[in-house]
């Protein structure tokens, strides 16, 4: 091959026919985009990943062991008979997934549409907008699951998950992450001008959800005026469901069902809205 010759002429490599490309993209496009997101994550994601596991573990030490010395000494009954460590372990698991979701479904979406316009590269390929959205969601979900699994393993080592069904809480956390993250993604994909919205989401939504969702104390110990925050919070629904699995929290089966329906319902609604926004924004 002479220097600078177009490779196709001389090389023996042949790309498959455009029809094959299109057919494959129609079937597997979401996976192709998920693969791309994972590749990018692999490049820079380790510190983020370590942080997303390290953060709940640090809280687990500080609260579950340090603060527990004040709490457990006074009353065990306040936490349904389990020690404080066991009580907060699933809450930190779920909160952590939700916090990761608040990062993954906000700035990267702006980045895709506006800053570095990374969504528009695949958009010129056979992929369709819905697949780009789905790929991003799938890759993020995988990340939540991974971080939740690693954190859960640590919780289990502490003996803070007495039930044999405790591992299900990692899946619950992943779903809770999507339950919060997908509506956020729908919102993020509708933003055209960045004026600090995500900082506000972080401070006025994520932090209150973390602090007022029965994370560090039962929701009942809050006055009714703020208890509603828990009822509409993916963190609370996820945490309570996680507690059912890790230590067999006793609650009405109806309530357990409500948790499941709430988490899946908000995630599904968020996904539907996101798809719609992506199609509208990229097809106009």
């Amino acid at each position: 091959m002479t220097d600078n010759q177009l490779p196709t002429a001389a090389g023996t490599l042949r790309a498959h026919a455009p029809e094959v490309s299109a057919g494959r993209a129609r079937r597997w496009g979401s996976f192709y985009y998920a693969e791309q997101v994972l590749r990018v994550m692999r490049g820079y994601g380790w510190s983020v990943f370590l942080y997303s596991v390290g953060q709940p573990v640090a809280y687990l030490f500080a609260m579950g062991i340090g603060l527990a010395s004040l709490v457990d000494a006074n009353n065990l009954a306040a936490f349904g008979g389990v020690n404080y460590l066991t009580f907060i372990a699933p809450a930190l698991l779920v909160s952590s997934a939700v916090m990761t979701a608040s990062g993954d479904f906000s700035y990267p979406i702006m980045d895709g549409f506006k800053w570095r316009r990374v969504f528009y590269g695949p958009h010129a390929s056979p992929l369709v907008p819905q697949q780009i959205a789905a790929g991003h969601i799938m890759a993020s979900a995988l990340k939540f699951l991974l971080q939740s699994a690693v954190y859960f393993a640590i919780v289990a080592m502490f003996g803070a998950s007495p039930s044999p069904w405790g591992w299900v809480s990692a899946i619950v956390a992943t779903v809770a992450g999507l339950s919060f993250g997908l509506p956020l993604m729908a919102y993020a994909s509708s933003i055209t001008k960045d004026s600090g919205q995500f900082a506000l989401v972080q401070r006025f939504i994520v932090v209150p959800l973390f602090l007022f969702s029965g994370t560090f104390f039962p929701l009942d110990s809050l006055p009714l005026g703020v208890r509603w925050i828990g009822w509409i919070s993916p963190v609370w629904h996820g945490t309570q469901l996680g507690r059912v699995f890790t230590y067999g929290l006793e609650e009405s089966p109806v309530l357990t069902l409500v948790h499941v329906v709430f988490l899946l319902g908000t995630a599904a609604a968020g996904w539907t809205l996101t798809r719609r926004r992506f199609v509208r924004r990229m097809g106009a």
Partner: peptide
């Protein structure tokens, strides 16, 4: 408010 009464 939430944890205070429990801790004392």
């Amino acid at each position: 408010v939430g944890l205070g009464p429990i801790v004392g």
